[in-house]
Amino acid sequence: MMEWLEPIKTLLGSAWLPVWTVLKIVLIVGPLMGAVAYLTLAERKVIGWMQIRIGPNRVGYFGLLQPLADGLKLFMKEIIIPSGSNKFLFVIAPIMVLMPALAAWAVIPFNAELVLANVNAGLLYVLAMTSLGVYGVIIAGWASNSKYAFLGCLRSAAQIVSYEIAMGFALVTVLMAAQSLNLGEIVKGQQGGYGALNWYIVPLFPMFLVYLISGVAETNRAPFDVAEGESEIVAGFHVEYSGMAFALFFLGEYANMILMAFLTSIMFMGGWLSPVPFLPDSMIWLLGKACFVLFLFLWFRATFPRYRYDQLMRLGWKVFIPISIIWVVVVGAWMQTSCWLW
């Protein structure tokens, strides 16, 4: 399949590996950025339909050029740096949001062979990368030197740290079931003769819910968007940002959503595996499952009002963490019996 690459390989010599890796990174990040752009359109359209509106339909047929128009508009705008702010941190904060959201894609397997870095500790790497995203929010809130931004960043720091624990425990059950930290191995552990019944969503259903809801909280999406809270603290941590700096926060949020959708599909819904035994496994299944999870994200936003802050903390600490710890013990005991079929 890769024979036509051989002449280029010999031409480049030892420079081949870096060039090939950079090319693969571009092949992941390029479509990802396109998906982010069109996810914003999909969000406005889907929520529009749910609320019996039309959504954007002016730019291009069916509003299809709307993301490009939005991007162009943000690109032309001036980036204002507040005079009392810390300039270096103010500029670096949006980059800190986007960087981990992109870096985590290095270990995402698209099918049995297609993965940029097939590392053994892939799951840990993903957890570490997603936990770094909070720094962008904290630094943005602090460096802006604004009370609204600061409140947003404090809320977000507390929220992300709280939900990370429940999320980590949900993933502990997955790695117990798969007996591996390698994301590719986790998907292969869900292979079997019964299609969708072999997926970890069946034995680990409560953990699937905990993971999905924690994922919504981690990405600061409605109904857990207290870090932005338009009606309380007018967009929270990014209130002082404008132009492309603001757009980077936006890109980071949507890239994180897509990442979370892919991770949920890989951990619980069998990744690239086909839900029915008579159809072949393919990357299309993974994309379809990710789109379904993304639709859930949009659906939540259109349906639920924002959680009050103390309720949010209660849900994280007093509901999700006890449930997930108990389920770790239950799965551990279950796996010792002959009733464990996965």
Binding site: V119, N120, A121, L124, Y125, L127, A128, S131, L132, V134, Y135, I138, W142, L154, A157, A158, I160, V161, E164
Partner: peptide
């Protein structure tokens, strides 16, 4: 020591230092 390296980032950078900054 990939486990220790990632655990350092996950625990100290991702949780402890966030609360510290807080």
């Amino acid at each position: 020591a990939e486990f220790l390296a990632i655990a350092l980032v996950l625990v100290y950078v991702g949780a402890v230092m966030v609360l510290f900054l807080f």
